[in-house]
Design a protein around this nucleic acid. Structure first.
Lengths: 153, 153
DNA sequence: TCAATTAAGTTAGTTTGACGAACTAAATAT
DNA sequence: ATATTTAGTTCGTCAAACTAACTTAATTGA
């Protein structure tokens, strides 16, 4: 193996392994979500609203890392479906505050519960020590994400 | 909090925590990849070819969980860019075997090395115990993905 | 053997999610 | 009062995915 030529075989550092495991894991989760009639980005928007409460369109866009234009489209679709509502705030008449409707909350809960159920039962099928490992690592994974976004100092 | 109504607040099981951590982590990695002139799906295709060697279009499509039609498009683009080549196998004249070209390997290595470098330096900045936790968990994460895809037995 | 079926890829058309640029309306600053 | 900035919208475009229909090659089976 003298030359080796680094090409594509140099791998398997911790970061690398975690990366590909995360890819496969999320891909698997996505198949679970397929049943929902809500697309992934829209489900995610509802999730933000469900956890943080009503938000301006701009804040939502920021939270989802999307431009305001893109968020406008999604909100239009969600509003048409009756899952969210727009309202002007008294403070500033430019801002549009988006809130989850009752039906939006209902559908979000349904989708979320379905996903959690699948996730939980898959977790439950693991060895206890594997569960412990996952538990221990999730905070570290968040920290790692943090390091990446803050940019190489 | 009496009623609670489960809605959106029921969370934070292990699976749930791992799920959102994985989302944030991959989102962060994506920002690193942004510099590459190769799109994420195409980079991923090159990766499969780099690790598994030449494959038929169909197998590639399966590996990437995409329809053959979609894969055809990507391969056309990559071939135009000189990153992969098509060839007929002797065995079956319907199948088209896709191989990485020298240039394809070069560009893949470059993108991969850039990503690994960012990943590694982010990992290096973590507490040693966090690194150990991530290391320990990556196999478990793969197992979890497996459980999800194989479907609740 | 040779028609029917199945299989591998391709082509065409559509949908979805994202973007940037140009615009409107409201708020702030000079 | 005018100029600038900010929030959201509209429009046009693009990339990536899908489905359906088609071509060519292989297999079956009568």
């Amino acid at each position: 193996m003298t030359g080796g030529s680094n090409s594509a075989k140099r791998g398997r550092t911790t970061g690398d392994r975690v990366h590909s495991a995360a890819i496969r894991f999320l891909r698997a989760v996505r198949t679970v979500d397929d049943g929902a009639r809500l697309s992934a980005p829209r489900l995610s928007i509802l999730s933000v609203l469900a956890f943080k409460g009503p938000l301006s369109l701009g804040s939502l866009a920021e939270a989802e890392q999307v431009t305001p234009a893109t968020m406008t489209r999604h909100i239009q679709g969600l509003e048409t479906g009756g899952l969210v509502s727009r309202a002007k705030t008294s403070k500033d008449n430019r801002v549009v505050t988006i809130s989850l409707s009752g039906e939006g909350r209902r559908q979000f809960d349904a989708a979320r519960n379905a996903r959690l159920a699948a996730l939980d039962s898959a977790v439950a099928a693991l060895e206890p020590e594997d569960i412990a490992k996952l538990d221990a690592a999730s905070a570290a994974l968040l920290a790692l994400a943090e390091r990446l976004t803050v940019k190489p100092d």
